[in-house]
Design a protein around this nucleic acid. Sequence first.
DNA 1: TTATAGATTGCCT
DNA 2: GGCAATCTATAAT
Length: 220
Amino acid sequence: MTRRTLAGPDALQRWSVVPREFYARDPRRVARALLGKVLLRRSGSTLLAGRIVEVEAYLGANDLAAHAAAGKTARNEVLFGSPGHAYVYFIYGSYYCLNVACEPEGRAGCVLIRALEPLAGLRAMAAARAVPIAALEARPLLLRKLTSGPGRLCEAFAITRAGDNGKDLTDTRSDLLIVDDGSPAPRVAVTPRIGITKSAKDKLRYVIAGSSLVSGPRKG
DNA sequence: TTATAGATTGCCT
DNA sequence: GGCAATCTATAAT
């Protein structure tokens, strides 16, 4: 597999946290702008990092597929709070999904993080996902098994509702945050969202064009 | 390579 | 009680 430079604490200093104002607008614009940004997880001495390559926008009250459409509940209250906070929910009895709250406080749009390109901490991710390192080195395509899919990336980053729901992703002291590493804005493709039944034809899924690490069946 | 079903928990009606 | 913003294994082509 390709050798990747491990991002140490010094690399972290070159990165800037994505500020709260970034999230305080229409989820469709936030979704597009989040592509290419980097999700960071610090757990003890281990640093996990992944570039965001696939997201979906959920629009709040007017979007029947959004959790917020039915109004504020104990489950989704983070969506109605301050932008830039993590909304983590449990789905299908087994998996967690990570969202970022958007829109100004009081409005409930969000962006679902659907796939990452692993940048640092691959061994820890592989261990969390029960993927043997030896297999990864032999077949680089197995990288997709680490973080291609909302349930997968949460498992790789050890993200849970109990541990991470409501966390501020714009706080540099947080152990879960989103940063800009200065890489240029990628070319973006837009498609319908995945895994929903309501409003299924709306084109609100954004992917980095040509990335081999987006979720779903391979198309090339 | 694509298509199907099954697992399994918490939230909402 | 029903269903869900998923993933995996297994089967069929």
